[in-house]
Amino acid sequence: MKHLLTTQGLSKDDAILLLDTSAQMAATQSRENKKLPTLRGRTVVNLFYEDSTRTRISFETAAKRLSADVINFSAKGSSVSKGESLKDTALTLHAMGADAVVVRHSASGAAHQLAHAGWLDAGVLNAGDGMHQHPTQALLDAFTIRRHLVGNVGDDGRGPDSSVGADLAGLRIAIVGDVLHSRVARSNVYLLHTLGAEVTLVAPPTLVPVGVETWPCRVSYHLDETLEQWQPDAVMMLRVQRERMSGGSGAFFPSPMEYSRKFGFDARRLAVLPDHAIVMHPGPMNRGLEISAAAADHPRSVIVEQVANGVAVRMAALYLLLAGDDSTGSTSSNTGSTSTDERIAL
């Protein structure tokens, strides 16, 4: 695996390998010594064009737990509107010898371009590009779902994870909220489908993209109906950006109150779900808008665990991107040619 850019097109085998590797990484994280020597000597650059302390820290922790050198390159403020910066930054990182670049960017496709435009040959890990994809978020969501609903780990998240190797066949996941602008929704729809789960998107019609009909999921405009009749095993709430409800004639729904009434998740709606069902949110939450405090803090909420699992999943992604033989990648020749030289000298 050279890059991790999108969950669309990720094979089921690769998806399960990522989850299984995450499980092994998670197992090491309950030890006193959490640090592994695996990526010693390798350099991971966190290239963040958008503020996201949570995601950056998660990636940074993951890289450090694997003993990689981490360079945080915050490009926020250096004009995102002007494209040269991405290319020039890429060339800089190339010159610095980055082995992997974790990139967060407001422009859809930025990670894809970094990987394929020929600006650098490091592995690229998409940490969120515009409205497109956020694959490690989807992986950590799938990992959390699998542990709870397939692996039957306890509420404390401890105990052996018996779900290694398993997919999510037969599980029903409702993804609720601003699907239109959500890279989390896009990433999850494809990954969960690949893993065998059924997905229903629930949103007001204004927040469902034109063209959604080719997505491997169903769409509902009614949350209560979906919860009552479809009985999802997991409900994933999406963050609603404040600016979606302003903008006068361009607002996507009439008011926060109406949104909350029709699409907000609360204790009443939680009570409709099967007993084993879990509640998820990628964070940060707008408490009182898309999710009530009672639902967010309920024992069936796994929101905090999602954050913890994020580190393990990102360790797995970094491991699979960086640990192996890189001779297929263009960076490779360094080590390869060195040993060739040695051979000749001998």
Partner: peptide, 21 residues
Amino acid sequence: LDVTMYRDDLRRQPTRAVGQT
């Protein structure tokens, strides 16, 4: 005891799956 993540030859081979300890 899975030793994959402690190997000194990871970069010389195709990516190894991490096993369970």
